[in-house]
Every structure is written in C-alpha cells, then in structure tokens.
C-alpha cells in the first residue's frame, strides 16, 4: 500500500497533500468542480456555494473543506447539479444579467458555469435591483448590476495589489460592492488595468474600456467549448481570450 493520502471523487482516486482542500486537490488532478468565488491564487472564500459537493454524504463547499484520507466525495450527481442550478438561478435573478447586452458575454464565468450545469431559465422571480454603472475611470468600467459578491476583486486589491480599493458594504440582501473613496467613484482611486483586481472578476462587472468587442461574439472562450475543458477566464492569458496578463 502506498503512503500517499487520497480520497475518491465520483469514484476516481484523487491524491492530496496535507492542508489541501477538496477543490485544490481536484484541480491539481485535473478534475473540474464548478466554482465562481474560488480562484486558486487566493484564500478560499466559500461564499458562492456553487462548488457544493457531498463529502461522506454531507453537503459541503469543496473550496473550504479540507481533504482527508479515505473521504468519499460526490460532485457530478443529478441531485447536486440541481442544487447548483438553483444557486445559479438565484445569482441571475438577484442582479441584472442581460447577457445579450453585456460585453463579457461568451467569456463570462457565471454564464459558462450556468451552461455547464445546464441552466435553461432563471426560474425565480427577478429582483431587477437598481444599481449604478461607474464609468469614471479612464480605462475601466464597473457595472454593479452584474456583481455576484464573490469578493475576488476585494481580495485581489487588498492582498496582491495592496491598494484596498474594493469592499462589500451591508449585510444579507443589502450587501453590495463599494469603492473605497469618499465619492465612491473608481476614477478617484489608483486603480489600474495592471492590477490583479482588474483580472479576476468572474462576470462582466469590471470591464476594460475600448476593447469590449475585440473578440467577436461566437468566437469567445466559452462559445464553443465548456468551462471544464477551457478553464477559468481569470486563469487564461489575454491572448487566449482570458483576463490574465502577467
């Protein structure tokens, strides 16, 4: 018997090292578990719940559950797919996600994960919240209508860029993304397109100006192949249609 620690994910053996989460070990083994607020470069957040899996028959978020030897993890079951679809539907109706009018459509992780789980319709009653668009910055736009509160920009700006530009204000249904300046305007901050925070948004909330349709609709990241094959938009370089530029 080998000393290597492992768990099974949908019957497949996944090795891991101490301290790794179920998500990290699966990712390393090349097995996709749908996720939105998880990004391998950041401390797990566990807020979007899309990575829900069953660990020894208990529902847990794969991104925050430590891997343990001998665990049985289920991910691609119809039960979990249905829950994930429900979570995604709630994310869609809570904001204003008008895909046909969004520059990010086709290279949007929220959309791609919804395609992957087979979400056909939003099912729930739409909130149609009234949220602003901030175009005060010369190079970037923030469309708060599309924010899903994953806090990746908050984490990137605080932990990598050291600028602390973004924060989430309010609780529960009142929670919303804010820009840390007295005016609340992005243009009044030191935000730059080279910031990590400009590269991690999984939706079309933080956009680069003047480049919206450089890649035509139909030829974008997730237009032809699903996200489990293509990978996350934040991890793929600019030249491949992703958001990353090192």
């Amino acid at each position: 018997m080998s000393d290597e620690q492992s768990f099974t994910l949908d019957g497949r053996r996944i090795p891991f090292q101490n301290g790794q989460t179920v998500m990290q070990a699966a990712l390393e083994a090349g097995v996709y578990i749908p996720h939105l607020c998880f990004n391998p470069e950041f401390t797990p957040h566990g807020s979007c719940r899309v990575c829900l899996v069953k660990v020894n028959n208990r529902m847990q978020a794969a991104c925050t559950t430590p891997a343990a030897d001998g665990q049985t993890v289920q991910s691609e079951t119809e039960e979990l797919r249905e829950i994930r679809r429900g979570i995604l539907q709630m994310l869609f109706v809570e904001g204003n996600h008008v895909c046909p009018a969004c520059e990010k459509s086709g290279a949007c992780q929220l959309q791609a994960v919804a395609y992957y789980t087979g979400m056909l319709a939003p099912h729930f009653k739409h909130f149609y919240p009234r949220r602003p668009v901030d175009a005060s910055h010369p190079e970037a736009v923030i469309d708060f209508n599309r924010c899903i509160l994953c806090e990746l920009c908050v984490r990137a700006s605080r932990d990598v860029d050291g600028k602390n530009i973004f924060a989430v204000e309010g609780r529960g249904i009142q929670a919303h993304l804010v820009v840390n300046t007295p005016s609340g305007q992005l243009g009044a901050t030191g935000f730059s397109l080279h910031d990590k925070a400009a590269q991690v948004c999984p939706t079309g909330s933080i956009l680069t100006k003047h480049r919206g349709y450089d890649i035509p609709i139909g030829q974008r990241l997730y237009d032809r192949k699903p996200i489990n094959v293509v990978g996350d938009v934040a991890q793929l370089p600019d030249r491949q249609g992703g958001r990353r530029h090192d």
Partner: peptide, 18 residues
C-alpha cells in the same frame, strides 16, 4: 414554450426596469 432571452428573463426590454 418560452423562447429567447426576453421571454425567459425580460431581456433588453427589461432594462427599462432601472
């Protein structure tokens, strides 16, 4: 059968809900 974005989520016309 609901066909298309507008039938499913209001679509572009629903942008007036702002």
């Amino acid at each position: 059968v609901a066909i298309g974005a507008c039938a499913l989520n209001g679509g572009v016309p629903a942008m007036r809900n702002q």
